[in-house]
Write a protein that binds this DNA or RNA. Structure first.
Lengths: 193, 193
DNA sequence: AGCCTTACTTGACACAGTGTAAACCTCTCA
DNA sequence: TGAGAGGTTTACACTGTGTCAAGTAAGGCT
């Protein structure tokens, strides 16, 4: 009989699969439906509209990758420096798979206030991690004198954002390892000098 | 009789005006046409399709802001450090107006290879400026030992990209001045330590 | 004057995609 | 037996893109 929750997940998986494959092609409701083996209308039984589906898909993807757990693990690094290294390493590893989803949102949130709100909500986790690291630098007496903890957090957050990753890895052809080492060095330097 | 070139510019100005106003709303061919006081079909007489119009619009905007001249001016800065400062200052001043156009492209280049190519072509100018600055740091013997000139150029380019500006100024609410001073310091530090 | 060309208009069309609606099927549970 | 959940099919209204064909207004050429 396939419970409602099962079908919902099935739709999300289908959407995710399409996003990962069709790097760039636009994701349509019809496409997701047929990928999931359902009628287009069935999708509307589970999601109010396209935006809601894509928001749910992003959260589903985060969950599937255990993103929250990984952020929690970063907090357990032995030092602020190690935490930054772990955060950048996480980005280097995850972004190749996460980027397609990220990209869809860049598009979507431009003309949908609700999506924009959901997006900011989703970013709260990474922002929180950055804030914690900044505070930790301060606690270690290593935070650069010219930076407030908030400014340091913002800076770290933007330096480890998928956007910067995209510029370097996709745009300039950097390898994951090159990104990891350079951005780690850069971020630590930016926060401590 | 209004030459063909005049009307073309008129359409580009109309498109630009709509992009600057409707922060977020999607730009339609019909909208541009009526803003320009023309029929929708007239627009297709001047531009093959929507993508071509938007590419032309971006180049037109660059020209109107004399972007190339500003990049040339950066090359005349008294030192590599001053050149970085000038580049970041340019971003801080220009990005508020340039960002809406940038944003349209982020969307568009995802599913149009020709637009992607035009985009990369357009970025060549800023990349070249970054390469020149990196080389200058090296000439001054100030380039960080762990950086090749190419890596330094890539790093500088991504640190001064509109994406990073957007993260900090739009996303985190930084003022133009705050962005300017922190990113200048960050970029100089990243390239010279 | 008559003619041709240029630049644009009008109106229609095909197509893709979103979102809504109504009627119908089919299995399960009580 | 019959109600309800979870689908399906079909159809429709609407927006936006891109194309096509016919018509018009004005300038320049001979």
């Amino acid at each position: 009989m396939s419970s409602k929750a099962d079908t919902r997940d099935q739709i999300l998986e289908a959407a995710l699969a399409l996003v990962q494959e069709n790097r760039g092609t636009s994701l349509t409701m019809g496409g997701v439906a047929s990928q999931a083996g359902l009628s287009r209308q069935a999708v509307y039984l589970h999601f109010q509209d396209r935006a809601a589906l894509l928001v749910a898909m992003a959260l589903h993807a985060d969950e599937a990758r255990a993103l929250a757990a990984k952020f929690a693990a970063i907090a357990k690094a032995p030092s602020a420096r190690a935490a930054v290294a772990a955060l950048v390493a996480l980005r280097a590893g995850d972004n190749p798979a996460a980027w397609p989803v990220e990209r869809i949102f860049e598009t979507l949130r431009q003309d949908d206030a609700l999506v924009e709100a959901a997006w900011r909500d989703r970013l709260a986790g990474s922002l929180e991690a950055c804030r914690a690291i900044a505070q930790r630098f301060q606690g270690e007496g290593a935070l650069a004198r010219h930076l407030s903890p908030d400014a340091a957090a913002d800076l770290l957050w933007s330096l480890t954002s998928p956007r910067l990753w995209e510029e370097l890895v996709i745009g300039r052809g950097w390898s994951a390892e090159r990104y990891r080492s350079h951005v780690t060095y850069l971020a630590v330097g930016a926060l401590t000098h």
